[in-house]
């Protein structure tokens, strides 16, 4: 700073004007900033939930102006409906199978693919790619692959020495086929999250273990899996929440058939609401889905707060 500073500074600039800022504007500002988002939440998320609960206690067919209060009648009817019970069974089977398979496969994949090098990052990308493809394309692609007569899958099946499988047209197989599609689509996504979890395990734990000459399987069971357990638990919940809502693949691939064998909860709501116009019934089923999701979400937040606590 060798030169005279003052000579370089302009003398007659109005540098600051002293005015008070309006207090009420300051006070209102955050509310104005969150208002648009909250209005959308209110109109399209919270109010509809309330409306759905309201409708579940009424009978309405959408056309008549009358909504008749029927108390718990809709729920009683649901429980007594053998189709609804089958729907619940289908949903649970689908959910548990796809979550179990996705988690197991992606955990194994992540332990294997969590390595450096372009080959591994390429494969990670490839495994992940189905996740960003529209469910429409995934469904139609697999319909084609699972085509009983000309499908690629049955060609493999025959090569392996089995008979052709009626993937989507036999009640015994249809739900399993949907599980396969779901696993194929989301296993890469889960794998990458597991890899992110693996990479956040402190390296020095492994260094300490190698100094102690710990055998590989003990490193896996005593260090890796326990350290990964928050991710594991979290992905399980997320998986359950996502799978219980399955709709698109069913709508495109099977339409709930054959013989209702792939009808699930959301499909049931859709059908009752949009095909049969039994809005009370559909809403009651919606409330049951709401209860399931709420329970899962509460567990999720419990785990999340614990996870935060650990860090």
């Amino acid at each position: 700073m060798s030169q005279d500073l003052l000579s370089h500074l302009p003398d007659n600039q109005p540098v600051a004007v002293t005015t008070r800022r309006s207090v009420s504007r300051d006070f209102l500002r955050p509310y104005i900033m969150i208002a648009p988002a909250l209005i959308v939440f209110l109109l399209f998320f919270l109010f509809p939930i309330g409306y759905m609960i309201y409708l579940s206690f009424h009978e309405w067919n959408f056309i008549s102006p009358e909504k008749t209060y029927v108390g718990l009648e809709n729920f009683k009817r649901l429980v007594a409906d053998p189709l609804f019970l089958e729907v619940i069974r289908n949903s649970l089977v689908y959910t548990f199978l796809s979550v179990f398979l996705t988690i197991t496969i992606s955990l194994a994949l992540s332990l294997w693919l969590n390595k450096k090098g372009w080959i591994y990052s390429f494969i990670q990308g490839a495994v992940f790619s189905p996740h960003i493809i529209s469910l429409v394309s995934v469904s139609m692609l697999w319909m084609w692959m699972m085509d009983a007569d000309y499908g690629l899958l049955n060609w493999f099946v025959e090569k392996l020495g089995f008979e052709k499988v009626p993937w989507l047209t036999d009640p015994k197989f249809a739900l399993i086929s949907l599980v396969i599609v779901s696993v194929w689509k989301s296993v890469g996504y889960y794998t990458l999250i597991f890899i992110a979890g693996l990479q956040s395990i402190p390296k020095n734990l492994y260094e300490a273990a190698s100094l102690d000459k710990t055998p590989k399987w003990r490193v896996l069971t005593k260090i890796t899996l326990p350290m990964l357990s928050p991710t594991l638990f979290f992905l399980t919940i997320i998986g359950l929440i996502n799978s219980i809502q399955v709709f698109e693949t069913i709508n495109i691939m099977t339409g709930g058939g054959p013989v209702n064998s792939t009808k699930t909860l959301v499909y049931y709501i859709y059908e009752n609401g949009f095909v049969f116009f039994k809005l009370g019934n559909a809403s009651a089923a919606g409330v049951i889905l709401l209860i399931i999701l709420t329970i899962l979400t509460l567990i999720y937040f419990k785990v999340l707060s614990k996870k935060v606590h650990y860090q």
Partner: peptide, 13 residues
Amino acid sequence: NQLVNDLVPGKRD
């Protein structure tokens, strides 16, 4: 000689 208690930072020069 100005009381600045209620003046925002930007106006305090």
